[in-house]
């Protein structure tokens, strides 16, 4: 099975644990991930002022490239990339003015084949025909959670996972939501399929602080702390998520959270793909667990015995 995959810049540098575990897991699902040739940054954030079309040019070009390479769908794991691609795609479907303006701009593109050096200067309009899927959707709709469950090689029932949706998988509802934005279950269903113990907690859709950690860093301490603390209070021993920015706020910046909340002594955060790859039998070395600030490795005890697992909380 061959499917187009848009990793996004962050997965190639900062979030290599998300990239590596995604590739490891998909290889175990016999799926070849194909990156569209010449892919660029998607823009990271969907433009709020769509009259200025330049924010739509990169994501639409990426989607058009998938179509040129005869792909009908593109899968992403980064929640931000997913939201940008999906909203840009929807704009091409729903907004004739944007459709015309973006396509008129992109018509002057030059596409150069990296091997043959052949130049392509003629492009069909992109009409929003590529399906943008988050990996969780791909697993639910294309692989099938029942089938996924049958492929699980390890017992993960000792891992009590709090699924954290954040904002970008669910909002804005009409444009991106991969599930009901108020009572989503797609993440829980996925975790159940791979055999984790799912922990419900009230902060699963709350904001982690998002880009505040770039402009006003300390402001993101509180929202991130509230999510982690809520997961812990509800009996989880790890938070799982799909967004590199949520991960940055909730794991990479945990030392700063500890400075502000003295009673907080750390809580592990995982990408859902790390759990997926692990469940499918991947070697622990392929998961990038050494990159985490709060060490999640005690959860991956190969003895698979709940009694042996002591998370350093």
């Amino acid at each position: 099975m061959r499917v187009h995959y848009y990793p996004g810049c962050t997965l190639k540098e900062k979030a290599t644990n998300l990239e590596d575990s995604t590739r490891e897991a998909m290889a175990r699902l016999d799926t070849d991930l194909v990156e569209p040739e010449g892919w660029t940054c998607c823009g990271a954030e969907y433009p709020l002022i769509t009259e200025k079309i330049h924010g739509l040019i990169p994501p639409v070009r990426i989607l058009r490239q998938v179509e040129i390479e005869e792909g009908s769908k593109v899968v992403t794991t980064c929640a931000f990339c997913f939201a940008v691609l999906k909203r840009a795609n929807k704009a091409m479907l729903d907004n004739p003015t944007l459709h015309t303006r973006v396509n008129e701009y992109l018509a002057d593109d030059i596409l150069i084949d990296p091997t043959t050096k052949e130049k392509r200067t003629h492009f069909e309009s992109y009409n929003g025909d590529v399906q943008v899927l988050h990996l969780l959707e791909y697993l639910r709709d294309e692989v099938g959670l029942g089938h996924l469950k049958s492929l699980v090689k390890r017992d993960l029932s000792h891992i009590k996972v709090a699924p954290y949706y954040g904002c970008r998988l669910l909002r804005p509802q009409k444009e991106v939501a991969i599930d009901d934005p108020e009572t989503p279950t797609i993440f829980e269903d996925f975790l159940n399929a791979i055999g984790c113990t799912v922990v419900d907690f009230p902060f699963k859709q709350e904001c982690c602080g998002s880009y505040l950690s770039a402009s006003m860093p300390e402001t993101s301490n509180e929202p991130s702390y509230r999510v982690l603390n809520s997961a812990k209070m509800n009996g989880a021993n790890v938070v799982a998520l799909s967004c590199p920015l949520c991960y940055y706020n909730m794991d990479t910046r945990q030392d700063r959270i500890k400075e502000e909340y003295l009673e907080f002594n750390g809580f592990p955060v995982l990408y859902f793909t790390q759990l997926l790859a692990w469940a499918l039998g991947a070697d622990v070395e392929t998961l990038g667990l050494d990159k985490h600030l709060c060490d999640p490795r005690p959860l991956f005890d190969i003895k698979q015995n709940a009694e042996d697992v002591e998370v350093n909380l």
Partner: peptide, 10 residues
């Protein structure tokens, strides 16, 4: 600051 316009390639 790159906005991905592609003018460089052109």
């Amino acid at each position: 600051k790159c906005i991905g316009c592609g003018t460089c390639t052109r």
